[in-house]
């Protein structure tokens, strides 16, 4: 029952003499949104191409609900709905005919199902227009519709918010969360933008230069820090910082108008309080500053910009 929906085992991709993907191993489970995060050129699209069988896997294997995409392609791929990079459609056909086209390629997609999916992505009004007259946002929705046609168990979206306006991004996020929570679909979303991942993912895997740097839950990701920024609101900030420097031999004390800010581990918080109270300083409030994913990400990747 607890078989992963998608399982990557030591996946490596070489093109020519270049190793683009190095030994990726991770599992994705039904009902979760897995964020695949990394700067441009990190290898997200290449990994996705291997998961859906567009590119051969040089070493290792990928299983979809236990079926190898290498050796049981049809059995594995029927579970997957995907958009790889931009959702390119036949521009001279209507959105509807594009969906009919993909519906014909898999058993059991009825006309009612097509209408249902069109409604779900909110394209009912324009579905009979030619795709060349669609905006980028509408194309993304049509892309989502074709991916959902056959009610897949695994949904893979490569940078799905590319080119969407803020409202479109919010809507896409809601779709994704709903699909995972209500329909138990395993969703893989790639992005180079952290701010998005934080809001829609359960777990995040960070990839850089073809290597997986780490997989963590979004919560862990933000909290796992050994050192946290903690602000202590006190009546005498100047005296406080002196006390702390003397008694706890901490450097890097930031002194504000009404507070001091320290970079410490959780266990040091009571020690700081004790020292302040002993020195007869009034302590009003303690505030832990949570790092954003962005800051955390910069730390993990060694300060490489993520665009």
């Amino acid at each position: 029952m607890n078989q992963p929906a998608v399982k990557l085992e030591h996946v490596t991709k070489q093109i020519g003499r270049k190793t683009i993907i190095k030994d990726l191993t991770f599992d994705i489970y039904s009902g979760e949104v897995f964020g695949f995060l990394g700067p441009n050129g990190a290898g997200k699209t290449t990994t996705i191409r291997m998961i859906v069988g567009l590119m051969k896997i040089s070493q290792g294997n990928i299983f979809i609900h236990g079926k190898s995409i290498k050796t049981e392609f049809k059995q594995a791929i029927k579970h997957i709905g995907a958009i790889v990079e931009n959702p390119e459609m036949y521009k001279y056909l209507s959105g509807y005919n594009n969906l009919v086209h993909y519906a014909r390629m898999i058993n059991g997609v009825s006309k009612e199902r097509i209408d249902e999916v069109v409604k779900l992505v909110g394209l009912s009004d324009r579905i009979h227009d030619k795709v060349k007259r669609y905006s980028l946002g509408m194309r993304q929705r049509l892309g989502l519709a074709q991916a959902l046609l056959h009610s897949p168990d695994v949904l893979i979206l490569d940078e799905p918010t590319n080119g969407l306006d803020p409202a479109g991004i919010r809507e896409m996020r809601q779709h994704i969360r709903k699909l995972a929570q209500e329909e138990g679909i395993a969703v893989i979303v790639s992005s180079h933008l952290l701010s998005e991942m934080e809001l829609m993912c359960d777990r995040i895997g960070i990839i850089q230069k073809g290597k997986l740097i780490g997989v963590q839950t979004v919560n862990e990701f933000i909290h796992s820090d050994t050192n946290q920024q903690v602000q202590f609101y006190v009546d005498k900030p100047k005296k406080s910082s002196q006390v702390i420097i003397d008694s706890l031999s901490l450097s890097n004390v930031i002194q504000g108008d009404t507070y001091i800010e320290l970079s410490i581990i959780k266990e040091q918080i009571p020690l700081v309080c004790e020292a302040l109270i002993k020195a007869d300083i009034k302590l009003y409030n303690i505030k832990t500053l949570e790092k954003t994913l962005e800051e955390k990400f910069l730390e993990v990747t060694g300060g490489v910009s993520v665009g």
Partner: peptide, 14 residues
Amino acid sequence: SWGTIKLLLIRPVS
């Protein structure tokens, strides 16, 4: 050239 091959070949069809 249009990129539609990426959606065409990810179906349970050889």
